[in-house]
Simulated scan of single mutants.
Amino acid sequence: DSVRWSAVEALGKIGSDTAISALVTALNDPKYPVRCSAVEALGKIGSDTAIPELVRSLNNPDSYLRMSAAESLGKIGSDTAILELVKAFNDPNYPVRWTAVEALEKIGSDTAILELVKAFNHPDSYVRISAVEALEKIGSDTAIPELVKALNDPKYFVRKSAVEALGKIGSDTAIPELVKALNNPDSYVRMSAAEALGKIGSDTSIPELVKTLKDPDYYVRMSA
């Protein structure tokens, strides 16, 4: 068993496409550590040839294997895996769901951005916040209208992350909504909005930030 595991590890480190066939075979190895290492090795090699088998692994009964498959598909970075990764947003295991969202972030294409935006309507708040954080890292202006809608999410930590994402993207397009967020009932959202407006650095937000110096919350005033 340890010999097969060591062989799979070595093939992953070598990183040659010629190893893919052997690694795909190892996905059906009777020993769990060998299967896990094979999934990870396929991600390291990063060849599109591995995608069909990794996609199949997204339906493996073992949640760790499903998570590793999603992570590997993110490393490969091909749009062809996106629809299957989106299905994994509904995986019964929450780390698999998060990893699938992170995989779309790594792919980072226009198609991936569109699917991440759709995830703002997902019933799982942790999928929603992961999607917001993913779009923040991608930093695309095309996500701004949906990030603005996320300011009304029922979960405060999703709203807070949406505000932070708008500040990180740094587009003047976000300023009117961030200014509105300075009056949000949630002090964390107001604080994040003030910080985001500071990062964007536009003179147009100064009058509203000055008003925020009278906010009842100390941390909001400090952020302004």
Rank of each mutant, 00 (worst) to 15 (best):
L213P: 12
T111H: 10
P61L: 11
L23N: 08
E40W: 04
T173Q: 05
V179Y: 04
I113P: 09
T173N: 02
V220F: 00
A38Q: 01
E40G: 13
I144P: 06
S130N: 03
G198Q: 10
P95F: 10
I82L: 09
L147S: 07
L54T: 11
D203T: 13
V55L: 03
S2F: 12
C36A: 13
E195D: 11
F157Y: 14
L182Y: 05
K87S: 14
K31W: 10
P154W: 12
S68K: 15
A41W: 00
S6H: 05
R159E: 00
F120M: 15
A112W: 02
P30N: 13
N93D: 15
A38G: 08
D124H: 10
T173D: 09
V117M: 10
Y64L: 12
F120W: 05
S37N: 10
S37E: 12
Y32R: 15
T18N: 14
E9G: 00
R4P: 14
S223G: 01
S202M: 14
S2W: 12
K160R: 15
G170A: 05
T25I: 14
S72D: 10
N28F: 15
P154E: 09
S223V: 03
L83T: 13
V189D: 07
V189S: 01
S6E: 14
L58C: 04
L42S: 00
A196R: 06
I107Q: 07
A100K: 04
A19C: 06
A41L: 01
S6T: 00
I45T: 06
